[in-house]
Amino acid sequence: MLEVKNLTVSFHTYAGEVQALRGVDFAVEDGEVLAIVGESGCGKSVTVQSVMQLHKPDTVDYKAGEILYNGENLLRYTEKQMQQIRGKEISMIFQDVMTSLNPTMTVGKQITEILKIHGQKDAGKNKEQAIELLRAVGIANPEKRFDQYPHEFSGGMRQRVMIAIASACNPKILIADEPTTALDVTVQAQILDLMKELQKERNMSIIFITHNLGVVANIAQKVAVMYGGIVVESGTVYDIFYRSKHPYTWGLMNSTFRLEQDKKEELHPIEGTPPDLLNPPKGCPFASRCEYAMKICTEQLPEQTELGTFHKCRCHLLDPDCPVDIDEVRKHEQKFS
């Protein structure tokens, strides 16, 4: 349905060229939830903003690759064509609900606006539909809420309004950029349930960006782990959680707090910091923090190895000529379940 191939994106800044994405590949199929996981600055937001073409045209440079939506390359679309895609075919919700709604417009107007843009001119019918949408996302008293402003809503309620706007035109794909990061756990659980419900009802695909592995386990069927502007590993949730092969994925798992964690056990953080994308390393971006790094890791970016139908990984440890046996390495990761 949506396929991103070798997407390479740079930004021109005063400091120089930031190579934000260096060949990103992933695919989303019909009715499936893909989670993109990674730390800040790994390029996950840049990736989805490229899909929606939300970057400022004067700074962004799409160097290579394609974004195929139903076989058509979105990177070739004009702004006018993109407007037909945004909101109708692919829509997006953001992390910061405080700034992504317009504070000077009533919530109702913000929902009917998108219906109007995409061709429904009957105001009365639009209002009816907007109220229905508000009800569908679990907002009590939608007739009254329709005329209220965003500041009259709490954070969780605002995210519900965002979801109502994003789902108004029945998009095929919903992109959610850390939609629950700013919310409390109890509200997060409500929003996740709501998204799953909508997804099932309308058979939407969702691209869900997060750094919380618990949320990934809750909502996703497929996962792509990003680091330093590339997808280092991707596969089904089971591939990633139980059969992962990339040292960065292990590191992420090991540094996640678990409720059942024993206090006496020390956490195993990934030492060091992510690479500077102004001047990215020649080899694997994770090499400087990787316990298993070899000489080749600092010299050459590893190719993708196919491990299963969906399971793909970019790591030199998987090379058939690699002297280290990856399964031996895995055994040393005692804490990894």
């Binding site: 730390e39 953080p269 030492e271």
Partner: peptide, 10 residues
């Protein structure tokens, strides 16, 4: 970030 959180906690 997740990987840095564990460093500070330790």
């Amino acid at each position: 970030d997740v990987s840095v959180q564990a460093q500070v906690v330790n």
